[in-house]
Nucleic acid binder design. Sequence first.
DNA 1: CTGAAAGCGCTTACAG
DNA 2: CTGAAAGCGCTTACAG
Lengths: 356, 356
Amino acid sequence: MPTIYDVATKAGVSTATVSRVLNGHPKVDPLMRQRVTEAVEDLRYIPNGTARSLVTKQTRRVALLISDITNSFFAETARGAQDALDERGYQLLLANSDDQSSRELRSLATFAETGVDGVLIEPAMPSNQSDATQRANRNKLSRQLEALGVPVVGFGPDRVTNTADIVTIDEEQAGFKAVDHLLGLGHQRIAMINGPAHSAVGSRRAAGYRQALTRNGVAFDPHLLISTNFRRDAGFEAMRTMLEWTNRPSAVFAGDDLIAIGALQALKNSGLRVPQDIAIVCIGDVARTIETDPALTSVVVPRGYELGRVGSQLLLERIMAGGKEPLSPRQVVLETRLVVRGSTVAGLVSHFDLIR
Amino acid sequence: MPTIYDVATKAGVSTATVSRVLNGHPKVDPLMRQRVTEAVEDLRYIPNGTARSLVTKQTRRVALLISDITNSFFAETARGAQDALDERGYQLLLANSDDQSSRELRSLATFAETGVDGVLIEPAMPSNQSDATQRANRNKLSRQLEALGVPVVGFGPDRVTNTADIVTIDEEQAGFKAVDHLLGLGHQRIAMINGPAHSAVGSRRAAGYRQALTRNGVAFDPHLLISTNFRRDAGFEAMRTMLEWTNRPSAVFAGDDLIAIGALQALKNSGLRVPQDIAIVCIGDVARTIETDPALTSVVVPRGYELGRVGSQLLLERIMAGGKEPLSPRQVVLETRLVVRGSTVAGLVSHFDLIR
DNA sequence: CTGAAAGCGCTTACAG
DNA sequence: CTGAAAGCGCTTACAG
């Protein structure tokens, strides 16, 4: 492998000059530039990024630490991040925490050694631990992140360090919009089938549910809120339970699309009509909610892609600012939007009808 | 940030000694080791990996170049790769080619600068190009990969360089097993709804289909093979077409599970019974094929995770061998297996029956 | 077993 | 505008 020294010799200049033309330094004699460029091509010279990093203290590399790349949401996040980074010539180092603090810290330690210019992190929040443990973990994470000495952008509502930017989805707003829509249609007895009550997402969606009710003068009835899991079978079972209540709800707010699909199945099995007998609204993905019959009215939350892209942009801004005049921590909240379909308003045509 | 020099000073030894204890060199006086360890902890010293890499020529970093991390198969590949790498303390650098040769080459160029110890690659094979262009791209890729001077493992049937290992799924075998099963059940008139005929996967699955037929003494009839897309609606339409044939097939081999699901829907809509009137077999994922009614008999191909894991293992072996005594190129072919369910044999219980 | 010193391949004040 | 030289933070023969 030729080095900068070989290029300099061949071009009959100093390594300093080679370095300058390589880095696009403006004040270089065109003749020198020419000779260097030729030598570079002749030798098929490739600059050694490691050596460069050692002196510049920059790696043009960013770490993305998520719970699991196999989760399609985070795969999208990774893609969004990568696309934004790519535009600026930055590379992506990937790590999975599996939502375990220990793994998270270990990855961070590796990044500290290896060297990165910034980190994007979806903080682990294992729900099977005591509050005290969780707080302790948060602190450790925060400290280790600060020790890295590079810009940090966190995904999710909580600020991971005092200086980190965060980008989040307004889950509470999503819940609010869903339920507000039902109330606007005249529903008064609205149940919710939520995911885990203490999950980051679940708790916020439920908060939106409550807020929409109370703001519209409908009392919140804890009996109408079932917390379960973000899974299809969970939605199916919860709906079956509700159908046995003496006083059925007229509408159901499903915490996500899988729950909604399960609930819909249960309603169909029992011969009830949607939306005439019971309406369903959910928070979810366009692609998935469009394929049911009827199609599901849903609040569409931004895709992981959007999160990743915006997160990277914030991070790059900080990296390029180079730590001078410290930007104050920023928070970007991505908006949600309601898409009305057949599961709350009868007669709307669905994609499913078209392909069938 | 403290350096190795600070540690040496504090411990009253030379930097060479510090380096030795840090790298677990066996012959170090326990006393020295003790003093160094303490100094490291006191100063919260973290070795600078960049400096280390500059002298050792190793980065403990591996590149994974795939078409798109958003494709769940490759997300799994990434995860499998990561898990295997993690065990050996290696990190993963991710890049997406979007199946474009230009992007692929650009990423590789960046890896050359940045430095990696090896590369895992799913070679781009854009199908909208002439054979000549494709071959030219292959050659460029091959040359650039060789120029990198590090071990390479490719995913897919084609060897990417003369020395690269490859790990692949036996798609032809998968097609063979699917059709062989139908023949074993007595079917003679077996149609296939394939994905794109010229795609890497599609062409091989179709080859397996033909092979199973001819080996069992059934003539291959090109009219019975419809090439379309690996999508649900494509399966639906293709099945509808087949239902209008004067001489219907008694069984259908769907190129993947999405196609099968669409085909199943079409059969249901037309009131036909599966498998009594028409049997269906497909190649696909367990999770997805289990949820239909009846559940789909399918040939299960290894998941992306398996590919990624095995690929990383091969790569790590080469990296650790350090280029001496050149290992000859290896090829790992991952096996497929047939899972018989209700879509070919009546009366088998499905998961769907259970949750309903 | 330990240390002095060279060297990995770059960039960047500093002088000119 | 250009070059000589120092320096980034490590590792590793080499000598002792």
